[in-house]
Design a protein around this nucleic acid. Structure first.
Length: 282
DNA sequence: AAGAGACCCTGGATGC
DNA sequence: TGCATCCAGGGTCTCT
């Protein structure tokens, strides 16, 4: 489940691996990866001869800027991941779920693997990026300087469960199910608390936990619980630092009370019923 | 307008 | 053991 730290890790590895490379060919056998049938059919022609200029990230979107002033936008969704192959295709990391591939003129190859075919790829002029994200109402990235404590307070001041708000990319961008559980545990906030009921001190705790935990996620290379791997094929290690996610029934690391799992916004929410109480006034 | 729920997809886990 | 069913979940779409 790639979230901000996983996507940032991917972007950093790809930046090292593919910037400056020239595209020899590109192909895909998965139409639903693209917005239209016509883009799917012409993706090879669209990319051939172009060069990778730089890489960026907005929330969970990967931005691959091309020399032609176009940008390839990739969303990994649930099970999508990139594999960077230096030479001839390494069958150990290839896995039968390659949906899209780019061959470079130096013989290396960038593979996009996605078991569940939820991933999406767009290609558009750089000048259309603002419209692309505006149309999706993407909020400020959780680790960007614009995402200040004041901004977060405004964004969270809605009559919805705080867990649902943290997951909503139009509220704050980059957080998914794993990190929202971890952030709320660290901030000692019950996942069902209404955003509009939060006191300033509670928002401050969420803000600090959010920045700290996402940065720790990046330092550890992300969470490898099921599908996620770095483009190099290596595992991340944040799973060793998590306190509540998928630990239902196990003792809370703070107070030893068994972790509980409930469903919020159609997602599993894990929390400590003792450390994260629903305020009686709520 | 904003919130809630369905839907996509498939491997792995669970149940009988 | 083997088959069927359930579950995970990000974002988009539809419904209320």
């Amino acid at each position: 489940m790639p979230e901000l730290p996983e996507v940032e890790t991917v972007v950093r590895e790809l930046r090292q691996g593919i910037v400056g490379k020239k595209i020899k060919s590109a192909e895909s056998d998965t139409p639903q990866l693209f917005k239209t049938e016509s883009i799917f059919r012409s993706i090879g022609e669209l990319l051939r001869g172009d060069m990778i200029k730089s890489l960026g990230r907005q929330g969970k979107y990967i931005l691959i800027y091309l020399k032609s002033k176009r940008v390839l936008i990739v969303h990994l969704k649930m099970t999508g991941h990139f594999l960077l192959e230096s030479g001839s295709r390494n069958h150990e990391s290839s896995n039968g779920y390659i949906r899209f591939s780019i061959k470079f003129t130096d013989g290396s190859e960038l593979l996009f693997s996605d078991v569940r075919k939820f991933g999406r790829i767009w290609i558009l002029p750089e000048s259309h990026l603002a419209d692309f994200f505006g149309g999706r109402k993407l909020a400020y990235d959780a680790l960007s300087p614009q995402c200040s404590e004041e901004y977060l307070h405004t964004q969270l001041s809605r009559n919805r469960a705080i867990k649902a708000l943290l997951l909503d990319q139009s509220c704050v961008a980059g957080i998914g199910n794993i990190y929202s559980d971890e952030i709320l545990w660290a901030a000692r906030i019950h996942p069902l608390r209404r955003g509009s009921s939060l006191m300033e001190t509670e928002v401050r705790r969420i803000f600090k936990s959010m920045k700290d935990i996402l940065k720790l996620g990046i330092r550890t290379g992300g969470t490898s619980i099921r599908d996620y791997r770095k483009p190099s094929g290596q595992y991340g290690s944040f799973q060793n630092y998590r306190k509540v996610y998928q630990r239902a029934g196990l003792p809370c690391p703070r107070c030893k009370t068994p972790i509980r799992r409930i469903v919020v916004a159609q997602r599993g929410a894990h929390f400590c019923p003792d450390c994260q109480k629903l305020a009686t006034s709520d």
